[in-house]
Amino acid sequence: MTLEDLAVGQTGVVKEFTDLEMSVKLMEMGCLPGETITIARIAPLGDPIAIHVSGYQLSLRRFEASTIILQ
């Protein structure tokens, strides 16, 4: 399951990444393996999405969310 599959309000824990380049950026922003992520909201047009991670809010596109594999 990836982060993209979660619905608003659902929570998941990061396991690993499918895209190395994206993972470097995501990890710098606090999306690390073991970190808990909650979907905060989805943009009115369905993309991008906003998540709560390590105490703040981050937005990312659906494609980027699909590179995050959850436990």
Partner: peptide, 11 residues
């Protein structure tokens, strides 16, 4: 650069 949209939504 490769386009991406990883952006902080500040309070």
């Amino acid at each position: 650069e490769r386009g991406y949209f990883i952006m902080e939504l500040p309070v």
